Simulated scan of single mutants.
Amino acid sequence: MTNEINLVDEYDIAIVGCGPAGLSAAINAAIRKKKVGIFGSEFCSPKLHHAPHIDNYLGLPEMTGDELRQRFLAHVKKMGLKIKDSKVTGIYPAADGFTLQSRDTFYQTKSVILATGVNTVKPIEKELDYLGRGVSYCATCDGPLYKGKKVIVLAYNREGLEEANFLAEIAEEVIVVSQVKENDARGIRLAEKIKQIPGKPVAILGEMWSTGVKLEDQELKADGIFIIRESVLPDQLVPGLNVSNQGIVINRECATNIPGVFAAGDCTGLPYQLSKAAGEGQVAALQAVKYLDELKNKAKKLATV
């Protein structure tokens, strides 16, 4: 995290994800008079959007997925809630809850609900071993460490190309290995000093510190490596979070192993069902409200001692 924090908003409950679980959590938390922040993407719930028909959502038969998605969004809008088009790259413990990081912007919240959906991200070999030791997921955060040095950007989305341009203002040399589809990259012009190398990354190279990237047909050397994807692995998003090979580990109250952090929907594992996601979103919101109310009561008791 950077030394200078640009703190723009404070919430009672921050919800990461704007699919059915996240939106269900948002409206339930708002009904309970909590200040809610919803962090999503430019297009909420593409999985639901692409469903040709939904027949098993109670009370709303014979609807297309997008019709139901539009109803969810309209409900949220009617509640006066807005979705921030912000990718959260880190959630860290703070004095009064948690700090959420989105590039160089930080948000304060008393509790968190993770509703990030199914995570299909598969780290390349040795990626997690070198995270924080030359490998980073945030160019804005760690870019200044590589002033005058050589860096590699593994770009899996449009944001990766934008971050490469940012790094070109700092680093001496920038190499981009892009996995971005041509349509998604349209309109982005890379800085002249950036060198693009085709190939598929398969591993991070290094000893005590990362020294480069192995592609299928060659090896690239650099002082730092930035990996920019659409989403961050849950246990990297929230350090210390208990995650199994099925998803984020929760109890019946949708609570994780970290007090104040809850999870709901597909990110908690099977079954990947709409009703389950919406139901867990409600449970997570009500339990987050209960958690906040208990904190408030404890503070009052301490104040009267």
Rank of each mutant, 00 (worst) to 15 (best):
I197W: 15
K200M: 15
I258Q: 03
G247Y: 05
H75N: 04
K193L: 06
T120L: 08
N183T: 09
L270M: 15
N28F: 00
S231F: 09
D85I: 11
E182T: 14
I194V: 13
Y107L: 11
K35C: 07
K200D: 02
A299M: 04
R252Y: 07
Y92F: 06
R103Y: 07
I91L: 03
I204H: 13
L286Y: 10
K150E: 15
R69A: 01
K301G: 05
Y11F: 15
F39P: 10
G160H: 09
L114R: 01
Q287M: 03
G224C: 08
V202R: 14
Q101N: 08
A278H: 11
I13N: 06
V118C: 08
T304G: 02
D184V: 15
D217H: 09
F72V: 02
E42V: 10
G65T: 05
L241D: 00
R189E: 15
V238C: 01
F106R: 11
L220P: 01
P234A: 09
L167G: 13
V243I: 05
D266M: 11
Y130G: 04
I15N: 08
I194C: 01
L302V: 11
K77F: 03
L205C: 08
F72P: 07
I27M: 12
A277K: 12
I124P: 04
A285L: 04
K33D: 14
E42H: 05
L241I: 12
L73V: 08
Q282Y: 06
L131A: 07
A155E: 08
